[in-house]
């Protein structure tokens, strides 16, 4: 992927598996979000291929990717439908099946049973995710009125509501306090245990990354510089160099070094 003369990412390849969390880390500007944007079709890669279960993603438009390849994502700066209620946010995620059930609104306008049943089913799916993210009590509240932490959860729940096989989380812990972060980590671990979803996770908070990921991919300047289990990554010299620069470790304050090497 290139922007003008800048090559944002090149030659990155890795695999993600169901019931696993693959974390993508790297310094600012390493190309992590660009990678997500290519994956979910917001950017079209200048060259190369992206496949998911054999489906060529680079040829699909973003909304087709979400529906056909069943990739769902969240955003760095939360993108909810703020004036709509929490439940409505989730119902929008059930748009495709509901639209089909309403025969493109005809059956819905006539109020046929076929549509009413589908709607009840969709509410049931939504309620299940609301329960799992402790949002049921807020179901009829405007999404924009929720506290920041709850909004993060709602965004993830909404993405899950589309029934994805791959879920891309873009810095889900950004702006959360330590308690909320711990809660989030637990939710992610729980998802990994019970749902057959492959997850990609971009995150700067190393406690989250090291706590839940099975596999870590490290990017720097748009290239993959390392890949492996959290244990391997922690000691990879290339990773340490990318984060700390070429300078001598001792020159840096110990807390910075500690944060990276945790």
């Amino acid at each position: 992927m290139r922007f003008g003369g800048l090559t944002a990412i090149a030659g990155v390849s890795f695999q993600a598996h169901p019931n696993q969390i693959t974390a993508i880390i790297g310094p600012n500007g390493a190309g992590k979000t660009t990678l997500f944007n290519c994956l979910t079709g917001f950017y079209r890669p200048s060259a190369g291929r992206i496949t998911l279960n054999g489906l060529p993603l680079e040829r699909l438009a973003d909304h087709q990717i979400a529906r056909q390849a069943r990739i769902a994502r969240t955003f760095q700066n939360i993108r909810l439908f703020p004036m709509m209620t929490v439940l409505e946010n989730l119902m929008v995620a059930r748009h495709a099946p509901l639209m089909k059930a309403s025969l493109f609104s005809v059956a819905g306008l006539l109020g046929l049973k076929r549509y009413r049943d589908a709607e009840a089913d969709a509410i049931e799916v939504a309620r299940r995710w609301l329960d799992r993210f402790d949002l049921t009590a807020f179901a009829d509240t405007e999404a924009g009125a929720l506290p920041h932490g709850k909004q993060r959860h709602l965004e993830i729940a909404r993405a899950l509501c589309t029934d994805p096989v791959l879920l891309c989380l873009d810095e889900p812990a950004a702006g959360l306090n330590p308690r909320e972060t711990a809660e989030l980590t637990e939710r992610l671990a729980d998802l990994r245990r019970t749902d057959d979803i492959a997850m990609l996770l971009i995150e700067h908070d190393m406690s989250v990354v090291m706590g839940v990921s099975d596999h870590i991919v490290v990017l720097d300047h748009g290239r993959k510089i390392a890949e492996g289990s959290p244990f391997e990554i922690k000691r990879d010299p290339a990773v340490i160099r990318a984060y700390l620069g070429e300078t001598d470790d001792e020159a840096l304050p110990p807390d910075v070094a500690g944060d990276v090497a945790c």
């Binding site: 979910t40 079709g41 917001f42 973003d62 909304h63 087709q64 979400a66 529906r67 769902a72 994502r73 955003f75 993108r79 909810l80 439908f81 703020p82 004036m83 709509m84 409505e88 946010n89 119902m91 929008v92 995620a93 059930r94 748009h95 495709a96 509901l98 639209m99 309403s102 493109f104 609104s105 819905g108 306008l109 909404r158 993405a159 589309t162």
Partner: peptide, 29 residues
């Protein structure tokens, strides 16, 4: 009034609120 309560109406409102989020949920803007 009826359309507003149907998936298409909700999708319209969602589109007004955030088109990018809509696309990420598989809605064709």
């Amino acid at each position: 009034l009826r359309l507003r309560r149907l998936p298409i109406g909700r999708a319209w409102e969602a589109l007004r609120e955030d088109e990018i989020a809509c696309r990420s949920l598989g809605l064709n803007p």
